[in-house]
């Protein structure tokens, strides 16, 4: 159904964002000998195998011991190494929050916490692994940069960009095959929102996998004569508040779309920006204070109200509140 729509961005193939991370890490490792990798028994899932093979002396298998991994990474960063830790998003955040807080964020260590299998689209493994709170936990930490790219190409570009950025970073990506709709030669600027589609009636601020859903929603809205602006917020923190305020000043209302709880996510950050500067109607597409469950990514996004159709409904509601 999506393919028959006249979307402003299109794709010919799909890949998982975690492969974007794996390929980006390999490139970063080739460019900078200080890049080191650590993984907690998920080398295949995180796509870190190519880096491990090419740089065995700069790769550390930690076993199923995520707390230790965060401490090791902090320690390695002291003499100038740039450690990239790899495990699932759940075990990259909640399980090791205090280690990140004290040894990495408070201590301003140049550690890149790379987190796969985030959100509902993890799928069949169910709620124990589907973290929907990680953006909130990470953005609350002072000194932490929080990035949630949307497809393979953007994740690869983001991975290479964070290697060149000094300071702690949380990089969130996922498991499912997803449309590759952004350019392979894109420049990734941390903290800089990307206006993908211009519009005048409503702004859709989307992050991660839901950027594609926003692109689809824009086409659907256009068919109904509604002009939506789509802005890709790949960096949750620091947030590009200028881009948000400029867009909403023009459109007068917005929708935020993310694979995360309402609480603590992108929606919260956008709402705070608007309330402080230019209050405007905002609708939230996200998970409403619940855990996930087993299912296919598509079924889960539909059941929990996170797909393009839900963005369309939310956009109309926001426009109606102007």
């Amino acid at each position: 159904m999506e393919k028959t729509l006249d979307t402003k961005f299109t794709y010919t193939e799909k890949s998982d964002t975690r492969s974007g991370f794996g390929d980006g890490l390999l490139e970063a490792g080739r460019k900078n000998p200080n890049v080191v990798g650590l993984c907690a028994d998920l080398i295949g899932s995180l796509k870190m195998g190519a880096f491990q093979k090419e740089f065995p002396e700069r790769f550390f298998q930690v076993g199923i011991a995520e707390a230790n991994m965060m401490g090791l990474a902090a320690g390695m960063s002291i003499n100038g190494k740039i450690p990239f830790t790899g495990t699932f998003a759940n075990f990259s955040t909640g399980r090791v929050y205090d280690q990140i807080r004290q040894s990495i964020a408070y201590s301003e260590k140049n550690v890149k916490i790379c987190a796969s299998h985030a959100g509902l689209t993890l799928g069949e493994d169910g709620a124990t692994h589907q973290i929907l709170e990680d953006l909130g936990m990470m953005k609350m930490l002072p000194n932490m940069t929080v990035i949630n790219p949307c497809d393979y190409n953007q994740t690869k570009a983001a991975t290479m960009a964070i290697a060149e950025h000094h300071g702690p970073v949380y990089l969130r990506f996922g498991r499912p095959k997803w449309p590759i709709f952004t350019p392979s030669d894109q420049k990734f600027e941390i903290g800089k929102a990307w206006k993908m589609i211009e519009g005048t009636d409503v702004t859709i601020f989307a992050t991660g996998h839901l950027v594609w859903e926003a692109v689809v929603a824009e086409a659907k809205l256009r068919e109904e004569g509604i002009s939506a602006e789509v802005i890709n917020i790949h960096t949750i923190k620091p947030l590009d508040t200028e881009a948000i305020l400029q867009s909403v000043a023009k459109t007068g209302c917005c929708v935020t779309a993310e694979e995360h709880q309402y609480n603590g996510g992108l929606g919260d950050s956008v709402a705070q920006t608007l309330v402080r500067n230019n209050p405007a109607p905002q609708e939230f597409v996200g998970v409403d204070d619940s855990f996930g469950e087993s299912g296919t990514p598509t079924d889960l996004l539909e059941k929990y109200g996170l797909n393009a159709d839900n963005i369309v409904k939310a956009a109309k509601k926001a426009i109606g509140r102007k």
């Binding site: 550390f60 707390a67 230790n68 401490g71 990474a73 902090a74 320690g75 390695m76 003499n79 100038g80």
Partner: peptide, 13 residues
């Protein structure tokens, strides 16, 4: 509980 991990990381670096 965190300092030994940090020291090991620094030693490996």
């Amino acid at each position: 509980g965190q300092g030994l991990s940090v020291a090991i990381g620094a030693a490996q670096a």
